[in-house]
């Protein structure tokens, strides 16, 4: 969300939670009083509530860009140890039982981020792409 300078001082996150009953998880915030602000949030709630929350945000001239969270994997540097596969429950990271190579299936990834800390070579990073 991008706030114009005149709404930066309004408690928008509070209003979203209190009035629209949505769960807010703040992932990144860059807000300076009196200037433009940027806020990266995850918003979870009933569809009607989320839609009304969006209408409210638009009424406040807040620009909304939906983003998708994905995991980037530097596959060419992988040693195929498997430390990431033990924390990956959707099964997006699995060691092939015959070749013993790590296989990454991005379509199964839910971006839970556990692999980021599990990889001893730091080959995973979180990517926020615009949907």
């Amino acid at each position: 969300m991008r706030f114009p300078s005149d709404t930066v001082n309004e408690p928008i996150t509070y209003t979203l939670i209190k009035e629209y009953d949505v769960l807010i998880n703040i992932l990144n915030a860059d807000i300076t009083h009196g200037r433009e602000g940027n806020l990266l949030i995850e918003m979870i709630g009933q569809k009607a509530n989320v839609n009304e929350a969006v209408i409210y945000l638009e009424s406040k001239q807040v620009e909304i860009s939906p983003v998708v969270k994905t995991i980037l994997f530097n596959e060419s540097a992988c040693l195929h140890c498997g430390a990431c596969s033990s924390v990956c429950f959707p099964g997006a990271l699995e060691i092939d039982l015959s070749s013993r190579k790590l296989e990454f299936s991005p379509d199964k990834c839910v971006a839970c981020e556990l692999c980021i800390k599990a990889c001893p070579l730091q080959l995973f990073e979180l990517n926020f792409g615009v949907n």
């Binding site: 040693l79 195929h80 140890c81 498997g82 430390a83 990431c84 596969s85 033990s86 429950f89 060691i95 070749s99 013993r100 190579k101 001893p120």
Partner: peptide
Amino acid sequence: IKTASLSSLYK
């Protein structure tokens, strides 16, 4: 319980 190795059998 899901298992995984820290050493690389591939390597």
